[in-house]
Amino acid sequence: MDVFMKGLSKAKEGVVAAAEKTKQGVAEAAGKTKEGVLYVGSKTKEGVVHGVATVAEKTKEQVTNVGGAVVTGVTAVAQKTVEGAGSIAAATGFVKKDQLGKNEEGAPQEGILEDMPVDPDNEAYEMPSEEGYQDYEPEA
Rank of each mutant, 00 (worst) to 15 (best):
E123R: 04
T64R: 10
G67F: 12
I88L: 08
Q134L: 12
Q62F: 09
V118A: 11
D2R: 01
A76D: 02
V77C: 07
T75I: 04
V70T: 01
A140H: 05
G25L: 15
K10Y: 04
K43T: 04
A91I: 05
Y136D: 02
G25V: 12
E105W: 01
H50I: 03
Y133P: 13
P108M: 13
E130T: 07
E57R: 05
P128T: 05
E126W: 04
K45H: 02
G68K: 12
K34V: 15
A29W: 09
A69W: 10
T59W: 14
A17E: 07
A29F: 13
A29H: 03
E35P: 01
Y39A: 02
P128R: 10
K43N: 02
D115L: 05
G31K: 14
V52S: 02
G86T: 07
V49C: 14
K23G: 01
A11S: 02
G36W: 10
E83N: 09
A27D: 01
Q79M: 11
V74T: 02
S87T: 06
A90P: 03
K45F: 13
G84Y: 13
V52T: 01
V118K: 08
V49I: 15
V26S: 00
P108Q: 11
A53P: 01
A56R: 09
G25E: 08
Y39M: 09
K32Q: 03
I112R: 05
N103Y: 06
A53N: 08
T54D: 01
A11H: 00
E123C: 15
G51N: 06
Y39F: 15
K34M: 03
K58I: 15
P117E: 02
A76S: 07
M5R: 11
L100D: 14
E28K: 08
K43A: 08
P138E: 04
K23R: 11
E139M: 08
E126D: 11
M5N: 02
G51E: 01
I88K: 03
L113A: 12
V48W: 15
E105V: 10
E114V: 09
V71M: 14
S9T: 02
V40I: 10
G51V: 13
M1L: 00
V48M: 15
Q79H: 07
A76T: 13
V95I: 14
E114R: 11
L38K: 08
M5P: 00
H50P: 01
G93Q: 03
N103M: 13
G31C: 01
E61Y: 02
E46R: 05
A69M: 04
P108Y: 12
A107M: 08
G86K: 10
D121F: 13
V118F: 10
E110C: 06
K60F: 08
G47Y: 13
V37G: 01
T81A: 12
I88M: 09
A27R: 11
N122E: 13
E110N: 11
E61S: 09
S129D: 09
P138F: 07
Y133R: 02
V71F: 06
V74N: 01
G84V: 13
V118P: 09
K102P: 14
G47S: 14
E139K: 10
A11R: 00
V37Y: 15
M1W: 00
V70A: 03
V37F: 10
Q109A: 02
P128I: 12
G106C: 12
H50Q: 13
E131T: 10
K58M: 13
K43W: 09
D115V: 08
I112H: 08
E126P: 09
E20M: 09
T44M: 13
A17V: 09
V95T: 09
G68H: 11
A56P: 01
V15Q: 00
A56Y: 14
V49N: 02
N65D: 04
V82G: 02
T92E: 04
D135R: 09
G86N: 09
K80I: 09
A124M: 10
A78E: 02
E123N: 10
D119K: 02
N65C: 12
E35Y: 14
D115W: 06
A17K: 11
G14E: 13
K97H: 13
V37R: 00
E110W: 04
G25R: 13
I88S: 03
G86P: 06
E57M: 05
G84Q: 11
M127Y: 11
A53E: 06
T75K: 13
T64F: 14
E105T: 13
A69R: 10
G132H: 05
G84F: 13
Q99N: 08
K23M: 14
M127A: 03
A19R: 02
P117I: 04
A76I: 13
A140M: 08
K21Q: 05
K45D: 00
G14A: 15
V26D: 00
E57T: 07
H50W: 13
Q134C: 13
Y133E: 08
V48S: 01
H50S: 14
V15F: 02
M127H: 08
S129Q: 06
Q99F: 12
G67C: 11
G25D: 03
E137C: 07
G51K: 07
S42R: 10
Q62W: 07
L38P: 00
K102C: 05
A29C: 10
L8V: 04
G84D: 03
D115P: 03
T54H: 12
S42F: 10
K32I: 10
V3C: 02
G41F: 10
M5Y: 01
T33H: 01
A91P: 03
V74G: 02
Y39V: 06
Q79W: 04
A89C: 11
V74E: 01
Q109V: 06
G41C: 10
A27V: 07
A30C: 09
S9D: 03
N65A: 09
F94P: 03
E35T: 10
G31P: 00
M5D: 00
E105Q: 12
D121G: 12
G14K: 08
Q99G: 13
S9W: 15
G67Q: 09
L38S: 03
Y133T: 09
E28D: 07
D98E: 11
G93T: 09
K12H: 08
T92I: 04
E104M: 15
V74R: 01
Q99R: 05
A89R: 07
P128F: 09
D115A: 12
P108C: 12
D2S: 02
E105P: 04
Q109W: 10
A140V: 14
D115R: 05
E126Q: 03
E104T: 09
V82L: 12
V48A: 04
E110K: 06
